[in-house]
Computed example of a mutant assay.
Amino acid sequence: MYQMLQYSLPVQVQEIHALEKNNVLKGRTDLIVLRHMARQLRLTLLTIDGASDAVFPLRYQLTERHTSLHRMLFYRPAQLFGEETLSFVGFVSGRQPAIDLDLSAELLQADQQMLTKLTHIPGLLAYSSLELQPGRWYNLVVMQSFEVKSDLKKIDMHQHAAYQLGPRAYDWIRIHSGIFPGGLAKNTPQLIKTRHYAFTATLKNFQLYEAVY
């Protein structure tokens, strides 16, 4: 799936190497991490008791190698056992070297509020976040279809985090869109496109580059 790449070039940049930050294509590497996260979702699912009085979302937390923290939320776990194709969005972010305590607290609050509101989105199945190294977060959102993305974007807290907090807290973000053919059981994620954001004070807060696979 990586043999043929086509790139759409936004006005801000002519090529990915012109980005001030996040100027290397990392689709293959990121996909390895996202596949690992999907595998952990699947393994955790197999340990869940089918209690009828379960409160959703189901919340789990693992400590992986090198004390990496892995949080998982299951909104509709029963729908993750099938073999139909599922959609996913993977967010990879690099924090700025130093952000103040108030901004960190605001980010945490926004994150908690948004995760609660996601419960009301029917096609959202699971959310996973892994701090692979300090300040380097991977987030995986598993959905029934990409139509769910429009519902996610309508959440006020998502808009606040994306447009107000993000440029102040992150150096860069990569957003991958793709599918799981055969569901999590097959665990063979395929990328469809990637958007690279480099936050800067000189070009309207960010530069953008998009790769279509």
Rank of each mutant, 00 (worst) to 15 (best):
Y2W: 12
L5F: 10
L5N: 13
Y7V: 13
S8Q: 09
V11H: 14
V13Q: 03
I16H: 02
I16A: 02
H17M: 06
H17I: 05
N23I: 01
R28E: 15
R28H: 15
D30R: 06
I32D: 07
M37H: 01
A38S: 06
R39Y: 07
L41H: 00
R42Q: 13
T44G: 08
T44V: 07
G50R: 14
G50D: 12
S52P: 14
S52Q: 15
D53N: 14
V55R: 14
P57F: 02
L58G: 08
R59L: 11
R59Q: 15
Y60E: 09
T63G: 05
E64G: 08
T67L: 11
H70T: 01
H70D: 00
R71T: 07
M72Y: 02
F74E: 04
R76A: 07
R76G: 01
Q79W: 05
F81S: 06
G82A: 12
E83P: 04
E83D: 15
E84W: 14
T85S: 08
T85N: 11
T85Y: 10
L86I: 06
L86W: 03
F88V: 05
V89E: 05
V92R: 01
S93G: 04
S93Y: 04
S93P: 02
G94A: 03
R95A: 13
Q96H: 09
P97N: 07
A98H: 07
A98C: 06
D100T: 11
A105C: 05
L107T: 04
L108S: 12
D111H: 15
Q113K: 11
Q113L: 14
K117P: 03
H120T: 12
P122L: 08
G123R: 07
L125Y: 00
L125R: 03
L125T: 01
Y127E: 03
S129P: 04
L132N: 12
L132V: 13
Q133L: 14
P134Q: 08
P134T: 10
R136L: 11
Y138M: 04
N139Q: 09
L140K: 00
V142A: 00
V142Y: 00
M143L: 02
M143Y: 00
Q144A: 03
I155T: 11
D156M: 12
D156F: 12
D156I: 13
H158W: 12
H160R: 13
Y163A: 10
L165Y: 04
Y170V: 12
Y170N: 15
W172N: 09
I179C: 08
P181Y: 05
G183V: 10
L184T: 06
K186F: 05
K186G: 02
L191A: 05
I192A: 02
I192R: 08
T194K: 01
A201K: 10
T202V: 10
F206N: 10
Q207M: 02
Y209L: 05
E210T: 01
